[in-house]
Simulated scan of single mutants.
Amino acid sequence: MALPSVYVDADACPVKDEVIKVAERHGLPVIFVANGGLRPSRDPMIRHVVVSKGADAADDWIVENAQANDIVITADIPLASRTVALGAHVLGPTGRPFTPESIGMAVAMRDLKQHLRETGESKGFNASFSREDRSRFLGALDQAVRRAVRAAST
């Protein structure tokens, strides 16, 4: 039985500590992927991958390495779409799950918001990350890990 891995799109990810906490509790490896600025860990279950500065280099690395039933943490909708297509369990840092049923609407909303920003109709402000977001993420990640571990054992 191969346990799932947790892949984190680590550039500007506000829930790195929470990911480590949940993954440690379940004995899962964590792979942080970023363009730089990662603090190394001595924990053998935590791996840091620094990719080139290319626009989608971290996303591409995650898509090339993640497998079905792995867990992916990202706020990037196109990356979420690509990893949902792989069969991964995908969560945003606020605990929002991206599923085969919800990813189409998420992509459409992202494209609409981008269009509104480009035309000046929207300033593109994002709500600040709250304590409630962090709490919701912890619960959602724990549920996703339990689903992934259960699926790996069948």
Rank of each mutant, 00 (worst) to 15 (best):
residue 147 R to G: 03
residue 115 H to K: 10
residue 126 N to F: 02
residue 64 E to W: 05
residue 144 A to L: 06
residue 82 R to K: 15
residue 58 A to V: 05
residue 69 N to E: 02
residue 8 V to T: 07
residue 49 V to A: 08
residue 4 P to R: 01
residue 151 A to Y: 03
residue 119 T to S: 14
residue 153 S to C: 08
residue 146 R to N: 11
residue 68 A to S: 15
residue 63 V to R: 04
residue 26 H to I: 00
residue 128 S to G: 11
residue 56 D to T: 09
residue 135 S to Y: 06
residue 37 G to M: 10
residue 44 P to A: 13
residue 117 R to T: 07
residue 59 D to Y: 12
residue 49 V to M: 10
residue 15 V to N: 01
residue 132 E to S: 14
residue 143 Q to K: 13
residue 12 A to Y: 01
residue 133 D to C: 09
residue 76 D to N: 08
residue 85 A to V: 07
residue 149 V to S: 02
residue 101 E to G: 04
residue 131 R to T: 15
residue 116 L to S: 06
residue 106 A to H: 14
residue 88 A to L: 07
residue 106 A to E: 14
residue 96 R to K: 14
residue 107 V to I: 14
residue 44 P to L: 12
residue 125 F to G: 11
residue 18 E to K: 05
residue 69 N to G: 01
residue 95 G to K: 03
residue 51 V to A: 08
residue 19 V to M: 05
residue 87 G to D: 04
residue 138 L to A: 15
residue 6 V to D: 03
residue 78 P to N: 00
residue 126 N to D: 03
residue 43 D to E: 12
residue 40 P to F: 13
residue 35 N to S: 15
residue 143 Q to M: 11
residue 22 V to Q: 07
residue 82 R to E: 09
residue 101 E to M: 05
residue 32 F to H: 05
residue 2 A to C: 00
residue 127 A to M: 04
residue 129 F to V: 07
residue 67 Q to E: 12
residue 121 E to F: 09
residue 26 H to E: 06
residue 40 P to G: 10
residue 38 L to D: 11
residue 100 P to A: 07
residue 137 F to Y: 11
residue 30 V to K: 07
residue 1 M to H: 09
residue 52 S to P: 13
residue 102 S to W: 00
residue 152 A to H: 09
residue 141 L to T: 09
residue 125 F to W: 07
residue 153 S to I: 10
residue 1 M to V: 08
residue 70 D to L: 06
residue 44 P to R: 14
residue 143 Q to N: 13
residue 93 P to D: 01
residue 10 A to E: 03
residue 138 L to E: 15
